[in-house]
Design a binder for these strands. Structure first.
Lengths: 195, 195
DNA sequence: TATAAAAAATACCAATCGGTATATTTTTGC
DNA sequence: GCAAAAATATACCGATTGGTATTTTTTATA
């Protein structure tokens, strides 16, 4: 790993939470130099422009949550338990190892959908692959006789994602622990209803 | 209505959709002068600063959706039908009279929750009063024997909001009509399950 | 319709924006 | 350990940012 590669990683690691908290438009190059202790010349020596840092930052934040999900799912053997990881996923969303600022998919989707096609595409692909993963789990759960055979695959998957993401918004906005708890119970109920 | 009041209304009306599309940080004063055809002096003659325009813009956008919801609910007599307005609310969200840029509560929540306490408070209050409204409808529906007496009030209300808001994000991000349809069916199902 | 008051336009401000050319320092391979 | 190359820092750029002081125009009233 060359010096440049290490610096690049360092910059991404330090600035990813900033983009997630302040957004693309709200994050300035001087935010990046402050967070890294590097100078503008160094940032621009390793990245073509602000866009490239922002895209790399999204990938970094996204990887944190998707690899957490995958690792937690791998701990369980039943498909119901794998799906139920989404409840603990949601419950723990505001603690480490999750990035500061909430869900990067949600944050990026809201800011970029009308303003930044590249970031929008990243978020859109994230939703799509998340949906496919859930559908796959349900399908395998049906084959395994864990779930009812008539569970609507796509509807269940996309609605579960909507419930979780909307729940993250509500919980983070209001700061009410009770809201988080209640929505988490709804996530659990939605999954239990598949059996 | 004085000239100043009319100009103030004019500025709010013209700039509210811009704030909803570009966000607070992404909207500049020159965006406001372009949209209104007025000059900077005129904007600052009617508003103290950018914050004050943004807050008025949020109120304007929020009023559009809340008055739509209220008007539609008033058309129905049963509490179930009143609740089901949320499905058509969601279905029609990307057409007039809804403001450009998606749900202003969601947009403001995501951008402002870590960065702008005043806007955050506005969004938080909007969620809170929406939740109370839904709880009130369910309660009356229970008293009216439309709904089961054991429906969990707060959980149902806050989870319905989460599902709708998450659904708006997913539908707007991906542009997939099918996702919108599927999530809308989940909203309907959640309400039908109360009976 | 003349006039005072209010509103809008003009012209300006320092600070910051994203970005670059160049100089200096630090790695790297021999 | 020495050069060449790569990486970082410095110094700078024009454009734009949010905001203000002042002048001109428009509105309301007597």
């Amino acid at each position: 790993m060359s010096k440049a590669d290490r610096t690049r990683e360092f910059i991404i690691e330090k600035t990813a939470p900033i983009f997630n908290v302040k957004g693309y438009a709200g994050t300035s190059i001087s935010d990046l130099t402050e967070a890294t202790g590097l100078t503008k010349g160094s940032i621009y020596g390793n990245f073509e422009n602000k866009d490239e840092v922002a895209l790399a930052a999204f990938d970094c934040n996204y990887k944190k949550i998707s690899s957490y999900l995958k690792a937690e799912m791998d701990k369980h053997s039943s498909y119901k338990e794998k799906l139920l990881v989404h409840a603990s996923f949601y419950e723990n969303f505001f603690k480490a190892p999750f990035p500061d600022g909430g869900c990067p998919i949600l944050n990026t989707a809201i800011e970029a959908d009308d303003t930044h096609p590249q970031l929008r595409e990243r978020a859109s692909e994230a939703i799509s692959s998340w949906k496919n993963k859930i559908m796959e789990l349900i399908k395998k759960g049906i084959d395994n006789k864990e779930f009812r055979p008539d569970v609507p695959l796509e509807q269940t998957a996309i609605s579960l994602i909507a419930l979780i993401e909307g729940g993250i918004m509500v919980a983070k906005l209001t700061g009410k622990l009770n809201y988080r708890k209640l929505i988490m119970q709804s996530v659990e109920k939605a999954i239990n209803d598949l059996t």
